[in-house]
Design a protein around this nucleic acid. Structure first.
Length: 271
DNA sequence: ACACTGACCTGCGAGC
DNA sequence: TGCTCGCAGGTCAGTG
């Protein structure tokens, strides 16, 4: 399940593999992956080179000569970089044929991922109504407090809201709440200034560490060529129902918060 | 204006 | 053992 660290890892890998490669043809095998008109998508991209590689939240941004190719992996999207003679997997939905006889293949078991073309002058700061990147200097405790004061619902819901901070998904939201020592159900309105300071520190530390680890892979993927997290990040609570809290030994609980499966330590995390 | 719900998908694990 | 059923997840459109 790619979140910000996984997307960053994929991007860095692809940057080193396909930079300056030219797209000579595109095979779209599941048309809903591509937003908008498929022929237009092909026409726009054929002949373009992969010039630069950026990320915004969980979106991959391939900067081409005359446009931006935006790709969101959702839950299980992956890219394979393989020889054109490699048998095509049944979950491969888009194939970019490159000038060096290799292919960039988009593989997505659940067909949830999406890609689209955006103009080259798209404002990436306000793109998709995304909030600040975790390391943006504008992400201050004063900013967090002012947003959370106006918000109803639990803190976990805010962490998952991409217009608040970009890039946090369900796994890291649980880990951030644990590191903050805050119950994921705690109302946004009751989040203190101190909580906000902890939130920023926890978010940056956890995501930074995850990037250094090459992302987290929770499910075991079967692919050997897949560009996914190769290392396991030390996850404290997510997916650890009934296991003991690494800090205090209390069994981890699983509940539902903001419509998501949520794991937390009922002793360490306070309302 | 805000928040919640359902749709999009497939694989897997639980339960019978 | 073999089947069905429901859950998992991020985003967006639709609804309340």
């Amino acid at each position: 399940m790619p979140e910000l660290p996984e997307v960053e890892t994929v991007l860095r890998t692809l940057e080193h593999q396909i930079q300056k490669q030219k797209i000579i043809d595109i095979d779209i095998r599941w048309d809903r992956i591509v937003q908008g008109d498929n022929d237009e998508f092909k026409q726009t991209l054929i002949g373009q080179e992969f010039v630069d590689f950026k990320r915004r939240g969980k979106y991959l941004l391939f900067i081409m000569n005359d446009c931006i190719l935006v790709s969101h992996l959702r839950m299980e999207g992956k890219y394979f970089y393989v020889d054109k003679d490699t048998p095509v997997d049944k979950h491969t939905h888009v194939i970019f044929k490159l000038s060096n006889n290799l292919e960039l293949r988009y593989n997505d078991t659940r067909k949830f991922g999406r890609m689209e073309i955006l103009p080259k002058d798209t404002d990436l700061d306000t793109f998709k109504n995304l909030g600040y990147e975790p390391w943006d200097e504008r992400l201050t405790s004063a900013y967090c407090k002012s947003v959370l004061r106006k918000r109803t619902g639990p803190i976990k819901g805010a962490l998952l809201d991409q217009s608040f901070i970009a890039g946090i998904g369900n796994i890291y939201a649980d880990e951030i709440c644990f590191k903050m020592g805050v119950d994921p159900r705690k109302a946004c309105k009751k989040i203190t200034k101190k909580n906000c300071e902890d939130l920023i520190i926890a978010t940056r530390e956890i995501l930074q560490r995850a990037i250094e680890c090459g992302g987290t892979t929770i499910r075991s993927y079967t692919s050997s060529l897949g560009i996914t997290g190769l290392f396991q990040l030390e996850v404290y609570v997510h997916g650890k129902k009934d296991e003991v809290c690494p800090v205090c030994g209390t069994p981890i609980k699983k509940i539902r918060v903001a419509t998501r499966g949520t794991y937390f330590c009922p002793n360490c995390q306070k309302r």
